[in-house]
Design a protein around this nucleic acid. Structure first.
Lengths: 354, 354
DNA sequence: TTTATTTACGAATACGTTTAAGTGAAACGT
DNA sequence: ACGTTTCACTTAAACGTATTCGTAAATAAA
């Protein structure tokens, strides 16, 4: 980049001071409309682009936010980013992406490095392996942070979540209503309030319907895909559940494969419902009943509140919404005897999220 | 951020000049190992983080790259970003994400704004609506750019693509081998060499097997999801194809829905194969045959070459690879009479991409 | 020994922007 | 008439880092 056009160039060309140019570019009230117009015109003509580094150095505003997520190649998170990006775009903000791959140390590296003033604020969905929250506690003191979906209880920050407890409760209730009496639960996000609330919802639904709480019916997610598969197989073979609630999407597909291997028929032998944002859920064989989180809206809300904080707009804690997930009944969880021929959630879905 | 720790702080504490501190932090040969160690130790102790804005302003290095893609909520692109991010991480680079939503104007806004020196380099997958390439021509003159997957022919830059022509050819060949004689083609990315090559592959495969080239068998992708659906329905009803090649993933699922609506059986009445990175392809009903691009590797290669350029490492044009897609035969395209009971690509798939 | 070279550091400046403080002229109030 | 505001702009000083150019001392070469 040699001979770039800067405020200096504009100033010299127009025979005014660089201060005037700078203020004109920032639409300051101190500058007359005539001068502003001249500056704007010339800036456009010469394709002037403000140097972000210099601007940031001086003003401590980066026009950039960071998004820290476990995994981008995941429908939920990519939709959430989509929402975040939409809000950021409107404000001419730039979006940095960081993937933790569920690694707490990576997460700490990111949060530490973001203390350097590279961004104005941070949106974060916590890694499931995070057990120590000290880095977050430090972080929220020093920079605006909004948590979304995957949050931790004990921290003072805005958190955008969904009705995890209710959703899990409803899922269990749904299975019970479809005749299940021995419902397994595929547990994940153990350390996060997100995961804990879902588990509570499941448990409470069972006890509310006088079903025994069998701890063997609950297994926890393992990073190792193969182990996970084996665990599910074990669960199904040994406990013979007639229903499964999967608390994360990654747990659901292995169930399908296990059933295929064991020759079990979904939903006849085993009913399945899963937290999921899979766009192909209606096309699976059988179509998968889901609790679908409004991922796009979560992203939008989270970004929206981050900007509220950046704008120093005051808001009450109770203005922060808890978004509602949707339980979409499809074949995988429906008792064929009870509701024959019904094709819920089976119609051609418009691409609402894009 | 008041009272941040800067080089000044370190210098004062150690009674050396800020120049020495700066050089020590950059591991300069001018500084003795003793002094370096002292600086490093203190920096760690005080949690010094280099101010990126100041550093960038002075050195013109941002340690940031931009990724411009059409849509993040798409398996292919999110996997590609995954690959890009992996490479960037290793180099301690930051990744900015920009979605064009297939809008050429948005694309221009982004490329223009990235001329400000916000990033060291750009990875881009071109919007399908892009018809005028002037902004790219300007861009590649001023900043290192690598195109991936969706590229345009007439531009002097590194392009990481897959064997689009061969893949489409093979897809057609595959359908022909499974008895199709009237193969429709769902065309997309018209303006991009990516889309053009795929179309050529399809056409050449037909003519190589003495099948007539019926232009009515080719329809083009429409942004409007509903129109798209109608177009496919029209195509199927009027042309009665016995095979369909979908050149993009977004085209494939509507086909499934249309067949459902028309009561057509896949693959008996109509065989389908699609370019796709859907992780659930094996679980669809019927499982979807796909041409799957190595999205993750594409991202890695693209980022790798961008860094080669940034490092000013010389490489020959023929070192830039064309990656190979994989044709995965599944139920949707297989002639049941020909290969009964075969379940290709049907086994439990390990999550290779994560 | 003298001279040349290397080593290890410091002083000073520039990167391009924003902004507090200041200025001269015009407009206003009384 | 005089002081006071307001307007429109300028001056100058940051922001925190990287780097060029010195330079003094230590070391090597002569």
């Amino acid at each position: 980049m040699k001979g770039n056009v800067t405020v200096k160039t504009l100033a010299k060309e127009l025979n005014i001071s660089i201060a005037t140019v700078s203020k004109a570019l920032n639409d300051s009230y101190e500058i007359s409309i005539d001068t502003k117009q001249k500056v704007w015109d010339l800036a456009k003509k010469l394709k002037y682009e403000r140097n972000p580094a210099a601007s940031n150095l001086r003003s401590h505003k980066t026009k950039t936010i960071a998004v820290i997520i476990p995994e981008i190649a995941n429908n939920f998170f990519s939709l959430a980013i989509n929402g975040i990006e939409e809000i950021a775009r409107k404000r001419d903000y730039h979006v940095l992406i960081y993937q933790t791959h569920e690694n707490s140390e990576t997460e700490i590296t990111f949060t530490d490095s973001l203390l350097s003033g590279r961004v104005d604020g941070i949106l974060i969905s916590v890694s499931s392996n995070t057990e120590n929250y000290e880095h977050f506690k430090e972080l929220v003191k020093k920079i605006p942070v909004v948590f979304f979906d995957r949050t931790i209880e004990d921290i003072d920050a805005v958190k955008i979540t969904t009705d995890d407890y209710e959703s899990a409760y409803n899922a269990a209730y749904h299975l019970i209503g479809n005749g299940c009496k021995n419902i397994a639960y595929l547990h994940a996000l153990d350390n996060l309030s997100t995961g804990q609330k879902r588990l509570s919802g499941y448990r409470d639904a069972l006890s509310a319907h006088n079903l025994p709480a069998n701890p063997d019916l609950i297994i926890s997610y393992d990073k190792d895909t193969e182990k996970n598969y084996d665990n599910i197989k074990q669960l199904i073979v040994l406990q013979k559940p007639d229903g499964i609630i999967s608390s994360i999407e990654e747990f659901a597909l292995p169930c399908y494969y296990v059933c295929k291997e064991l020759g079990l028929n979904i939903p006849h032998d085993l009913k399945i419902i899963s937290f999921s944002n899979l766009s192909t859920a209606p096309l699976l064989s059988p179509s998968l009943s889901t609790i679908t989180q409004p991922a796009f809206e979560i992203g939008k809300e989270a970004a929206g509140f981050l900007f509220k904080i950046l704008d120093k707009k005051h808001f009450e804690p109770d203005e922060v919404p808890t978004l509602k997930s949707t339980l979409i009944q499809r074949e995988s969880s429906l008792d064929k005897n009870k509701s024959p021929g019904i094709h819920l959630g089976f119609h051609y879905q418009l691409n609402l999220n894009v």
